[in-house]
């Protein structure tokens, strides 16, 4: 009987000591907030398009930090997913098609002579890239447009086009070489196909 009590007593004593240590550490090393959100936010493309289902990029960053999937951002595409996967050390998954597809970079262009100056697109633009005043023609600052599409829907006269940004001699860049297998002709590159989607 005594040994049992002794054993329990010793264990309780140990637990108390350790509990005290941990309690102290908890106070001493208390951490506020979650700095990871900022880092995630920095990787998102900041189009503020809402295709992920969140009102802007920051809320999505917070959602990711809380465990949402990292593949809900079509404007960022696979590059962003890869970057997020690297940061969070998780598997890079393909883009979730439910939230849209990855398109080429586009900007909004207003057909000026059709614009009636309703300012609806100005209110819709998340980054203040549309310029104009009530009953006056509006125009888009192409440099600042993130191509989020949000101004297209509200336009009552459908005068906003999303135009793909073409390649000029200044923005052109070399392609990635095709690699080893592509140069030797008779290959059905099954492994490579898997890599491409990876």
């Amino acid at each position: 009987m005594f040994t049992v009590l002794l054993a329990i007593g010793i264990l309780v004593l140990l637990s108390l000591i350790f509990g005290a240590i941990l309690g102290y550490a908890n106070v001493r090393f208390h951490v506020e907030g979650d700095p990871i959100v900022d880092q995630i936010d920095a990787l998102l493309p900041q189009t503020q398009c809402g295709q992920c289902g969140h009102p802007g990029c920051r809320p999505y960053a917070e959602a990711i930090a809380n465990g949402e999937a990292i593949n809900h951002c079509p404007p960022g595409g696979q590059v962003t997913i890869q970057a997020l996967a690297d940061l969070l050390d998780v598997e890079a998954v393909p883009l979730d098609g439910d939230h849209g597809t990855e398109n080429a970079k586009r900007v909004a262009v207003i057909r000026e002579d059709e614009c009636i100056g309703c300012t609806k697109c100005i209110q819709a633009c998340p980054v203040d890239a549309i310029l104009g005043a009530a009953k006056q023609m509006h125009t888009v600052i192409a440099d600042e447009c993130t191509g989020c599409d949000l101004c297209v829907e509200p336009c009552p006269v459908d005068c906003i086009d999303m135009v793909e940004v073409g390649v000029t001699a200044k923005t052109w860049s070399w392609d990635k070489p095709q690699g080893i297998a592509a140069t030797s002709l008779n290959i059905i590159a099954t492994d490579r196909q898997a890599e491409v989607t990876h």
Binding site: L14, F18, P35
Partner: peptide
């Protein structure tokens, strides 16, 4: 018990010093 405490302690320290 000992190990759990030490690990918990380390976790707190790491959380504070290197969030990433």
């Amino acid at each position: 018990l000992v190990i759990a405490v030490v690990v918990q302690f380390t976790e707190m320290v790491v959380h504070k010093t290197s969030p990433l």
